[in-house]
């Protein structure tokens, strides 16, 4: 490795890491936490026994999932950031990114959570109901704790996917990791080196998450006999 290559690495890596700490990681964490809450609400509404006029609520949530799963994330970002100002709704790039990522990851994760809830045998509901629990108690005390275990691998998929999807925020003027790499590459004429460095940082972040997923899976499966 030539000394100039090494120099480029040592001078650009801090900038890339700073962008990760300032944008990529907070964008991912905030959007994922909000997205999970939205996903839980969406799954609960879609599984609810709402009757009569309240069915419209279920329809609204169905429509939300339908739209956000059926259009590209990049297009969603553009509509929220560049499109909505035409209707007089203007967001900062940061807010637009959080809103879009939250809605997007919420739509996908709601299906994961809905499937996980449905995967818990009906006998669990019946046993808890016959003990006098309300439906809400059964859901929160008996069903969801078991659904967490089932939904952990697919939710980790969404989480890791989101880490990488935040690079799309570069297209709405957010100077996150990818944009920083782009800028330095334009100055140094070293695209291979710079984009590889950016990729490496994504790889490290996602590796940490993968290891974390492993621990969480182990912990949430502690009541399941060892399977191979």
């Amino acid at each position: 490795m030539s000394s100039s290559t090494w120099e480029i690495i040592t001078s650009s890596l801090p900038q890339i890491l700073t962008a990760a700490a300032k944008y990529t990681i907070p964008l991912t964490l905030i959007s994922f936490v909000l997205g999970l809450l939205l996903a839980l609400l969406t799954a609960m509404v879609r599984l609810s026994l709402l009757r009569g006029p309240f069915q419209i609520v279920r329809g609204i949530f169905w429509g939300y999932v339908w739209i956000f799963r059926s259009t590209p994330l990049l297009v969603q970002l553009f509509i929220v950031f560049f499109g909505l100002p035409n209707l007089g709704v203007q967001f900062s790039p940061w807010t637009a990114a959080i809103i879009t990522f939250t809605l997007n990851v919420g739509a996908y994760s709601s299906e994961t959570i809905r499937a996980a809830i449905l995967s818990i045998p009906n006998g669990q509901w019946e046993a808890a109901l016959t003990l006098g629990m309300t439906r809400r108690q059964v859901l929160f005390r008996i069903i969801l704790p078991q659904a967490v275990r089932v939904s952990l691998p697919p939710l980790s998929n969404s989480f890791i996917g989101l880490v990488k999807d935040t690079s799309l925020a570069s297209s709405i003027t957010i100077v996150e990791m990818f944009t920083v790499g782009q800028q330095i590459s334009a100055k140094t004429y070293e695209p291979l080196l710079l984009y590889s460095l950016v990729a490496l940082v994504y790889l490290v972040i996602c590796t940490v998450l993968t290891v974390l997923q492993g621990y969480l899976e182990k912990w949430t499966s502690r009541y399941v006999p060892t399977q191979h």
């Binding site: 045998p121 006998g123 669990q124 019946e126 046993a127 808890a128 008996i142 704790p145 078991q146 275990r149 009541y223 399941v224």
Partner: peptide, 8 residues
């Protein structure tokens, strides 16, 4: 089928 709560 017993239906014990497996996580408890």
């Amino acid at each position: 089928s017993f239906n014990l709560f497996p996580h408890l």
